[in-house]
C-alpha cells in the first residue's frame, strides 16, 4: 500500500521511508506518541498531503499525487484529525455530502437512505439533531457525525484519525463495535490511528508503532502490548540504551 513514503513539511521530515501493506479486510492500528507522523501518514494516503517521496497504492491503482476526490472515489473514506465538520450545514447534510460520488449507480437513492438509517441507528442523537446546524453539536456528537459520514459511502477502506477523541467510554465501545461489525459484513478494511495502544489490544488485530516518522514495531496488537519494546518506544527508554 505504501512503499518507501517520505513526507516533508518544508525542511521538517514528518515521515521517513515508511513502507506498509494492508490486506483486504484487515484491521490495522497505528499508534505512537505525539508528533510520530501518524496523521501525516493518513493524509498522504488520502491525497491531502502528497508525499515528497515514495509511492502510494490503493485498490490496485498508483494513487501517488492523485487528487483526494479521486482517491475517495476508489473507495477510501478518511476521517481526519480535528473532525472537520461542516458547521454551517445541518447534521443530515453533512452525512450526505460524500454520497454524491455514486449518484450514477443504480438504486443510489435507496442505498443512501438505508445508509442514513444505519448511521442513525448507531448514533440516535444524530437523528434527533438531523435538521439542526452541525456546528452546534457537542464535540462528542461531532465525532459521531464524522465517523457516520465516513461510513455513508460504502467504502473499501476506512481510515480514522483518533476515533476515541472526546467520546465517552461507552460511546467508544459502540463505535468500535460498529466498525468491527461492518468489517465482518462487507470485508471492510480498517486503518485506525490511536494515541494509546489500549484499544488496539482490546480489539485485537495488527498494530504498528510509529515514532519520529518511522515504524518501530509491526505485529499482533495483543502480543505487542505486553512487550518491553513497546514501553521503550513510547517513553523513549531506547534512546539511553
Amino acid at each position: 500500500m505504501l512503499s518507501d513514503v517520505t513526507i516533508r513539511y518544508g525542511r521538517l521530515t514528518a515521515v521517513r521511508n515508511v513502507s506498509l501493506s494492508l490486506a483486504e479486510g484487515e484491521i490495522l492500528f497505528v499508534t505512537g506518541p505525539n508528533g510520530a507522523g501518524k496523521s501525516s501518514l493518513l493524509r498522504a494516503i488520502a491525497g491531502v498531503t502528497p508525499p515528497a517521496g515514495g509511492r502510494v497504492d490503493f485498490a490496485d491503482h498508483d494513487v501517488t499525487g492523485r487528487a483526494p476526490e479521486d482517491i475517495a472515489r476508489l473507495g477510501l473514506s478518511m476521517v481526519p484529525e480535528g473532525r472537520e465538520v461542516f458547521g454551517s450545514l445541518t447534521t443530515e447534510e453533512n452525512l450526505l455530502v460524500g454520497t454524491g460520488m455514486h449518484a450514477k449507480e443504480r438504486n443510489w437513492r435507496a442505498r443512501v437512505a438505508s445508509a442514513l438509517e444505519e448511521v442513525y441507528e448507531t448514533f440516535p442523537v444524530l437523528k434527533e439533531r438531523r435538521h439542526g446546524q452541525a456546528g452546534l453539536l457537542s464535540g462528542g456528537q461531532q465525532q459521531m457525525l464524522v465517523i457516520g459520514r465516513a461510513l455513508m459511502t460504502n467504502p473499501r477502506l476506512v481510515a480514522i484519525d483518533e476515533p476515541s477523541l472526546g467520546l465517552a467510554p461507552n460511546v467508544i465501545d459502540l463505535v468500535y463495535e460498529r466498525l468491527i461489525a461492518l468489517r465482518a459484513q462487507r470485508a471492510l478494511t480498517l486503518l485506525i490511528v490511536e494515541q494509546s495502544s489500549t484499544r488496539a489490544m482490546m480489539a485485537g488485530g495488527r498494530m504498528i508503532l510509529m515514532r519520529g516518522g518511522e515504524v518501530l514495531l509491526d505485529g499482533d496488537a495483543r502480543a505487542m502490548g505486553q512487550s518491553e519494546a513497546m514501553q521503550a518506544a513510547y517513553f523513549g527508554y531506547g534512546e539511553q540504551a
Binding site: A46, V48, A67, P68, E69, A72, R73, M78, P80, E84, F86, G87, S88, L89, E93, N94, L96, V97, G98, G100, M101, A103, R149, T153
Partner: peptide, 24 residues
C-alpha cells in the same frame, strides 16, 4: 440541489469536501 450542497460544503472546508469525493 446536490450541486448546491457540494458547493456549500466546499465553500466551508474545501479540503474536507474533496476528501469526501466532491470534485473540486
Amino acid at each position: 440541489s446536490r450541486f448546491g450542497l457540494e458547493m456549500r460544503a466546499a465553500a466551508e472546508n474545501f479540503t474536507m469536501a474533496r476528501v469526501l469525493g466532491v470534485r473540486a
